[in-house]
């Protein structure tokens, strides 16, 4: 998919520049884009490293476990069919807590273990179970307390209040997740568990 998108973007740009006669601007765009992307990465890296470090302190202090405990009533209701103390539910809870803290690297291994546990409980080998759909949906929605990347980028480009967007981000992601989960529940095999 990305192969096609990448090629299409550049080919369209070149064809369009030929038609509109913006050849020199296009050439400048290539040079500026390449330089700017590395500049942006370097500027961004400082803040992103700082955040990763701070979040690692939070993780080792047991933040994830605390969030996991707060979440467990919600998750138990969502995944009704899973036994209370099952390994699947435990992995799901760790994955969601890590996602909330924005620890993508920590969340993925838990998520993959959760999928493996869910597969053991599923009767089909190549078809997604209702629980799997719900779980993947939670991971396709961004449920992050601190969207550090967006905040950092806003800061770099001179925002007066980089984190003023937080309430909007929270409301918007909760609404999105709610819509996704509602649709998933409607499609459940037994009309919602």
């Amino acid at each position: 998919m990305m192969n096609l998108i990448f090629a299409a973007m550049i080919i369209i740009a070149v064809v369009c520049a030929c038609v509109t006669g913006k050849g020199s601007e296009l050439a400048q765009g290539v040079i500026d884009g390449a330089a700017e992307s590395i500049q942006l990465l370097i500027t961004m890296s400082g803040m992103m490293l700082l955040w990763s470090g701070i979040m690692e302190i939070a993780r080792r202090g047991g933040f994830t476990a605390i969030i996991g405990r707060l979440l467990s009533p919600v998750l138990r209701r969502l995944f009704k069919k899973l036994p209370k103390d099952s390994k699947a539910l435990c992995c799901i809870s760790m994955n969601v807590s890590a996602n909330l803290l924005g620890l993508g690297n920590a969340a993925t291994p838990f998520g993959i273990s959760a999928m493996k546990e869910l597969k053991k409980l599923s009767p089909h080998s190549d078809k997604a179970s209702d629980e799997m759909v719900l779980f993947v949906l939670i991971n396709t929605a961004s449920i992050q307390i601190m969207p550090t990347m967006v905040g950092t980028l806003r800061q770099i480009y001179g925002s007066r209040e980089p984190f003023a967007i937080l309430p909007g981000v929270w409301i918007s992601s909760v609404c999105a997740l709610a819509v996704g989960l509602t649709i998933a529940k409607l499609f459940c095999k037994n009309g919602g568990s």
Binding site: M9, A13, A17, G29, G33
Partner: peptide, 9 residues
């Protein structure tokens, strides 16, 4: 680079 090219063109 691709986005900048699209913009410049």
């Amino acid at each position: 680079v691709a986005v900048d090219m699209l913009k410049a063109s």
